[in-house]
């Protein structure tokens, strides 16, 4: 296998992490919605924590994207 095709395969493998982060982000919002429907009065106060969890989960997916880009272009 030559280097160029190995790079492409590596970038594709690195992009799997983006899908894994999608599960994480969906989990964050899903759990929030589940508990917000049970207690709507407390939901507004937890919006900041919701976005902190979202940011933490999303960052890892973006890191996977960065790794894929670095494998492809560097």
């Amino acid at each position: 296998m030559d280097l160029a095709s190995a790079k492409m395969i590596g970038a594709g493998l690195a992009a799997i992490g983006v899908g894994a982060a999608a599960i994480g982000v969906g989990n964050v919002f899903g759990s929030f919605l589940e508990s917000a429907i049970r207690n709507p009065a407390a939901a507004d106060g937890q919006q900041g924590r919701l976005f902190i969890g979202f940011a933490a989960a999303e960052l890892l997916g973006l890191m996977a994207f960065v790794v894929a880009m670095m494998v492809m272009f560097m």
Binding site: A55, E58, L59, L62
Partner: peptide, 12 residues
């Protein structure tokens, strides 16, 4: 992490 999150989200 603060810087990477923003610029990668925009680029993607």
């Amino acid at each position: 992490s603060l810087a990477t999150r923003l610029f990668v989200a925009m680029i993607a």
